[in-house]
Design a protein around this nucleic acid. Sequence first.
DNA 1: CGTAAGATTGACAAGCGTCAAATACAGTGG
DNA 2: CCACTGTATTTGACGCTTGTCAATCTTACG
Lengths: 248, 248
Amino acid sequence: MHQFSRISAFADMSAGDMAAIRALAGPPAAYRRGQSIQTQGEAGPRLFMLEDGWVSASLGLSDGGCQLLKIHLPGDIMGSPSLPYTHAVDSLTALTLCRVRPIPLNRIGTLFAEKPRVAAMLFLSAQEERTILMDRLTMVGRLDARRRMIAFLLHLNDRLALAGMGENGSLTLPLSQQQIGDLLGLTPVHVNRTLRGLAEEGVIRRQGRHIELVDLAAMRKLNILPQRHLQFSPDWLPESSNLTDLPH
Amino acid sequence: MHQFSRISAFADMSAGDMAAIRALAGPPAAYRRGQSIQTQGEAGPRLFMLEDGWVSASLGLSDGGCQLLKIHLPGDIMGSPSLPYTHAVDSLTALTLCRVRPIPLNRIGTLFAEKPRVAAMLFLSAQEERTILMDRLTMVGRLDARRRMIAFLLHLNDRLALAGMGENGSLTLPLSQQQIGDLLGLTPVHVNRTLRGLAEEGVIRRQGRHIELVDLAAMRKLNILPQRHLQFSPDWLPESSNLTDLPH
DNA sequence: CGTAAGATTGACAAGCGTCAAATACAGTGG
DNA sequence: CCACTGTATTTGACGCTTGTCAATCTTACG
């Protein structure tokens, strides 16, 4: 009940629809910080639901480089980009101690057959992720380091707030500066410089990996990316099938 | 018949499934080069199928910057990233004279209700686009200008080859160097320098906007991004509903 | 207490952006 | 057919953001 109220992607879903998604997943497995859940290139895509903790999705390059593609928070479905491929396209790594539930692929098939409305919302969720990546691409392609950092901190802050994790304007990252660099397309050294700069200007305060966004309003004004407004239950969605739609 | 044999995303679809997608779209409208099909921020998402010509999807920044998100080729569905939102997230602009067919949204709803297999392939198609964006993000975040250009040229060459448009190793871009820069996260000046460099090294040959990839093998060796292998009809997909599944 | 990983800092180099001017090119109207 | 005009391409000079290298310091943890 608790962690599913904070799935941003499914914010608009009915209790029954949420139960349908939740029912897909198997029993949870635990991973320690740094442990690999899925390795890029491994055969056969797998699906997961993140029950608790933080997970990174990343793409490794043959020259040793690494790009962090997404920070997964509880409630996220992980592994879906690999579904149309023969091998896993990204690596999933536990950023904190976390619990992960596998989702058997054939249940996705029956979901499409039996619960068209939930399937459509899964489709919409994929499109939302696509838009988030479009924003990320724009951020890395057209913004300088300072603006990238601000956009990143704001985005994560909003996601955490929406998920009910941690108070607004205050976050503790389970990421090294190396990893923040891999996320933003910067070197760890420059991440450090950028953070120091923001702190010296008084835009943020920090101690260790804890960061406080001092002047949220000023930061939002510096954020060039357009605002997005979710409308997650459009009127063209198919009706709920009323068979197994009741919670519990 | 013709242009649908070149939809990479639906390469594995049965004739019946293809017909189901095709049947969604309305009559085509024509757009001249530079004309806007959809404007970022406009109310109410719309869906399109590109019948003929090239279209760019782009995201404008409030400081005047612009990021090209995707080059759409014939057969592509356009506008889907905006579906979960109240307003269009990207702009669609004709790069060449092109024909575009609108897809009424409610038909997507009935598609999910009546053709679960086709709906699932639509879902897979969204995941494929997501993976392509993940590759783009990695490219812009971790590769220098030279490698970005090579990866771009290779990617486009492969897409065109797969679509049966133009011979392998030879392409004519309907993009200005400004637009290539917006695609790769570079300035037009640096795009020019990079292209000149590649030409001087003999990796490519060019006259105007026509580019020949002289040494495809060498270029592929320089391409750091991992290769992807589509498996677009996994065994967990739901069965075709056998009502209107026959071609014609 | 010792060790390893991460954070911080400085000096330096380089890739890319910025500015500006020159050239080529396409479309238009006379 | 040609001058005219705006747009895209090309090129050079210069500067700044960011990357690279390397040393030091801090922190976490066994």
